[in-house]
Amino acid sequence: MAYTESEILEGLAEIVSEETGLPADSVQLDKSFTDDLDIDSLSMMTIVTLAEEKFSVRIPDDEVKNLATVGDAVSFIAGAQA
């Protein structure tokens, strides 16, 4: 069963909150991972790995640089679901 975009946002927010300590409700679609959430490239890889496991998708390493905002990540995960 595919996750809806709002379910993906909710799940991703939990992962980001766990990794960074930020409140989950601060993880919004328009937020930039680097500029707004202050997530560095190593933490981003941790978030990506946990998201891959949670949503059963593959996010190639080369793709991660294109995921500038939370919305980019939600869209990619939604599109990558089987």
């Binding site: 490239s41 190593l42 981003m44 890889m45 941790t46 990506v48 790995t49 390493d61 991660v64």
Partner: peptide, 12 residues
């Protein structure tokens, strides 16, 4: 090295 990529491989 491709730091983030190696980090992901090694860490997980």
């Amino acid at each position: 090295q491709d730091g983030p990529s190696v980090f992901k491989w090694a860490s997980f």
